[in-house]
Design a protein around this nucleic acid. Sequence first.
DNA 1: GAGTTTGAAACT
DNA 2: CAGTTTCAAACTC
Length: 798
Amino acid sequence: MDVVPSELNSILPDEIMDTEAIVMEDSLPVASPAPAPSGVDATETSVSMETEVPEIFSLCSTATSTQMTLALTTPTTTDSVPCTMNSGTQLLLTPSVSSSQCHTPAPAPKPTTLVAGGLQKLSAPFTLSANHQLILNKVGSSSGVDAKSHGTPLLKHEGQKLVVTTISKGGQPIVLTLPHTAAKPGTVVRTGDATVQPQQFKVVAIGGRTELKPVVGVQTVSTASQLGSSSPQTASQNQQLKTVQITKKTVASTAGPMVTKFIITKALSSKGLSSQTSVSPVLTGRVLGQGTPVTPPRTIAIADTLNSASQSVPTSKVAISPLMSPSKLTVVSMASPSPGSPQKTVSLPLSVALGQQILAVQQPTSPAKAAPNQSTSQTVKPVQTVAVGGVGTSQFKTIFPLAATPSVQQIQVPGSRFHYVRLVTATTASGTAHNSSPSINSASSQPAKPLVVNTAPMRMSVPIVPAQTVKQVVPKPLNSTAQVVPTQTQQRLIMPATPLPQIQPNLTNLPPGTVLTSAPGVGNVGYAVLPAQYVTQLQQSSFVTLASSASYSTTTGIQTQARMPLNGTLSVSESTTRPRKPCNCTKSQCLKLYCDCFANGEFCSNCNCTNCFNNLEHESERLKAIKACLDRNPEAFKPKIGKGKEGESDRRHSKGCNCKRSGCLKNYCECYEAKIMCSSICKCVGCKNFEESPERKTLMHLADAAEVRVQQQTAAKTKLSSQISDLLTRTTPALPCGGGRLPYTFVTKEVAEATCDCLMEQAEQAELSSQPQAVAERVILEEFGRCLMRIISSAGGV
DNA sequence: GAGTTTGAAACT
DNA sequence: CAGTTTCAAACTC
């Protein structure tokens, strides 16, 4: 998956993200043949995938690159969850075993395959392990048609929460995280489906909006019947909607029947970008809306409110401050759970998530049950995007895990300028390398793919502060690696994984680019908001080194990374998106407001500063500096120039200037620099920066004239360039093979023949006049020169 | 590019 | 809160 700059976020849904709706339903088990000791029982989960799409999802850590892979890892492998595939989509669930073929559901924790009658084959072994992640890799080509999986894959779904991460179109893996619950393997009950109180959450991406709604009275899905009935679909369908419905039935001894259903609707276009998502009506009443016809954003709904067990388990929660209205929020939790912790889940409270999107990335906690194919996990950098839509509000989140041992996950908040980076200390080596590995395709195709980082349960809910200043965003052209870089990045906030009581009150004031990390020894979770540019750099660099809590050392400084020469693409974007000048701080370590980078909440990048601490390498110092600044002035990181309500006239400096000697007509004056006039709150002396000031008018005229001049020059250059290009185009014969138009192409066959005729004529004349050979040669050469001149003039004249 | 000027930020 | 110092950007040469 590509890293998407924040600016594109608004565009992203259409451009980048596939629309996938995953609905997870949890219903209480009606009857529990095998009552589990705990109120929450591990139950069989029947996963029914209804796919109209020929593409097949494979749930395997070892899925081949060409396949879409779903990797489901749950802590307990013993339980198998029957999955039903309605239509041609096959879902293979194999606990820690990858199988290309469909398998009948085996009660034992054997590899189960979900086979959808779909045209494409997805073989995916998925391991139910601590990871709780389901990774779906989209396969570019569907090779074979898969037999329907009559055998229903058993997904062990102990957690009542299913976290689904959207899959990037670029073949990025989809990660589904299944939160662990207290349910035990033995308690699993086969799909007997009594659905008593199914809860369903419907995620619908409509026009880029995601809606998540709980649904009551969910229908139960019979797995076996559906599987049998499901008909394979032809691979010819380019765009298809895949719906995966996973019904989880849990039988609790005491509790009523619970049925958990996961509905995953994914609109996939075989060709990628343009996917039309129409939620298949197959799941009646479950899909609230339909994806936007054009490149809808992928949506992941995480619903899990019912299970008490799941709730009991520590979960990561991200709370988005409702006050701030970031239209899009991306949050990545990267906490590294203790190896023993069975559950790694991110629960997104609907109440919190309403109207906001949250991204959650989880890592498997229990290494033992990690997917077998871990060798590649390090290299694989799946991008995960999760969209949690509040009702009526469209939002989506994008997570960009950055791979590498110092695993960094980046979250981009569309519409907001926040880049959230979560730093995870690689504590659990075994656990970290895991499931994400299956996405081989993505790794190869996209270098900067993040690993799925292990996420420990988040301890804190973090309010996220939206960028306060709305700045013009320049959308970048979407390419394969669509990236959006804000013209002026504002990053804010940060949520400390560890409690930062001092700062929390001022979270809203946190500077952009702030990195909050857990205090040493407290935890390894950290959140960082990175400048869009920085994120872009990180993504492109394909590896990021983060030092958090000294848990791991960084081999390469971030500063270094940031300063790394950008490739052409980045440089272009940078020029347009990063107006900020590089700082030259020498004594402040870029940790004081003297530093513009720091003041703007940005990491230093391509700066000339020395001894810079304004980077991820010095998270703690930076954090302290931020805190100090906030202590001095809670408004320190708020924009100094108030946003004009209606036009620039309303803009004014929040504090006013104090100029003494500049007359407020030089850039020393913050008001003048901001191109606003001084106001009554200014304490300047000899101010000339007011409306009627003749000096100011003169300066403005000069500035305008200069600007016009520049624009004219630019326009002239552009025009000239286009003219030259046009000239070459018109004068150059089109080459059949589509080759470029080069000067030699002016010499067409006719021209060559004419030239030869001229040369021959000269030769004949020389011969007739009995000229010496040397003279004849000279005459011929002269004629050749004239011919060339005519050709050139002819070309230029056209 | 070096040096000066300037005013915000930081400090007392 | 006021005065002073520090700092880095803006400016000049």
